[in-house]
Simulated assay, not measured.
Amino acid sequence: MATNTSLYKMNHTMLRVKDPKRSVEYYQNNFGMKLIRKLDFEESKFSLYFLAFDSPGAESAGRQWTDREGILELTHNHGTENDENYKVNTGNVEPHRGFGHICISVDHLEKACEKLESNNVPFQKRPSDGHMKHIAFVLDPDGYWIEIVGQKQSDSASASTNLDVYHFSHTMLRVKDVEKSMQFYRSVLGMSLLRTCELPEARFNVYFLGYAREGEERDYRGEENPLLDREGVVELTWNYGTEKEEGFKYHNGNEQPQGFGHLCISVDDLDAACARFEDLNINWKKRLTDGKMKNVAFILDPDNYWIEVIQNESIKSRVSW
């Protein structure tokens, strides 16, 4: 059986956390995410917490976790919560920049930020800071950046924010050579370029990619953001000139110091998808046959970021997660 990339999903983004209780409560209380799955690997001494928006109106509400987009996986290595010296790499401090942020879209930017402020959530950037008034950045318990963008604005003083309509919009990664990265995400992973934002004055561009949906405009370049009400998007940020710097590389989050772990796609047929990757001569981190876990594979993108590949269990049953 051949694999069909149109059935792939940008399933989740993995971040390592120090204290899972604190982190899970943070995402639940401040953004309304729900813990939809927990996997414990006692022998290997780590646990995985899968959080997603799951209200009745959420994009993937009620679906089996491998059949979703917009999941946040928090990985806890047992004992870190009691280690005074444990600290993650957020990806935004030199010389370990790479992963940038996750982004949550909200119904009303100012009201959402007011709620976060009242919950004593620390801000990296408020809407009133700098020139970009349409975004904010807050910090999670480990210092990871979370971009906040508004789906719509309201002039009503009585307007409030509704957590039930929030979305896990995208994950941002910095890339060295945008042509190589675009070739990988489009031709290898089968994603479509959904939106481009060119910012020559600031000397960087951003490219939004995902698995295209019926009727969705491709490579949108207008001022409005058409992707705020959908999930499963990857934002690639390219700073001009990095592709020409010999020896330049971004930190992939898995070398020390660790933080961001990987993106994950779920596929229609895991064996067929991996056979296709093999034919494309991609770089492997882990083949299905490597190690004890025979139901996951990891491939590497041009910047050495890890991409996990798993079976969409709603299409073809393979393992009981």
Rank of each mutant, 00 (worst) to 15 (best):
Y185F: 13
K9A: 05
K286Q: 14
Y250H: 02
P200C: 14
R174Q: 10
K87C: 01
T289H: 11
R186N: 08
V24G: 09
G210R: 04
V138I: 15
I71A: 06
G100S: 12
N85T: 15
E216I: 05
W284V: 09
L116A: 08
K176M: 03
N89H: 00
K21G: 14
D268V: 07
E147F: 10
V309A: 10
L35F: 08
Y220L: 02
P257F: 00
G253F: 00
K133T: 14
I299D: 06
V233K: 01
A202Q: 11
M33N: 10
V309I: 15
K176W: 03
V206C: 13
N281M: 09
L263T: 05
F123Y: 07
S266F: 08
S266E: 01
Y26N: 00
V149I: 14
G215W: 03
F277W: 14
K18E: 12
Y86D: 06
F137T: 06
G253P: 00
K111Q: 10
P200L: 08
F168K: 06
G215A: 09
Y220E: 09
N120E: 11
F53L: 09
G247D: 04
L163D: 04
S118H: 02
S158Y: 10
D177F: 13
N252D: 15
S23N: 13
P226W: 10
S55C: 07
S181F: 02
V234R: 04
N4P: 01
V188N: 03
V188L: 12
F46C: 02
W145V: 01
L173F: 15
P20V: 04
N239P: 01
G291H: 02
E59V: 13
I36T: 13
E278R: 05
Y185C: 07
R16Y: 05
Q64E: 15
E81C: 08
S128L: 11
G57R: 13
E179A: 12
N82F: 13
I265E: 04
R126L: 14
Y26R: 01
L109V: 02
P200Q: 05
G98Y: 00
G57F: 11
D177S: 09
S55W: 14
M14K: 04
V149P: 03
K9F: 10
G247L: 13
E94W: 00
E198H: 12
E223G: 09
G215Q: 10
K286I: 08
V165A: 11
D54M: 10
F168D: 00
A112Y: 02
F184E: 03
N89G: 01
K34E: 12
A273E: 06
V24I: 15
D271K: 13
N252E: 04
K9M: 12
E69G: 14
E42F: 10
P200E: 13
E94C: 05
F248C: 07
N205M: 04
Q28Y: 04
M172R: 11
D268C: 13
Y144I: 05
P127F: 07
G91Q: 01
G222F: 11
N162G: 03
I104K: 01
R287Y: 10
Y49V: 08
H134C: 03
E59M: 02
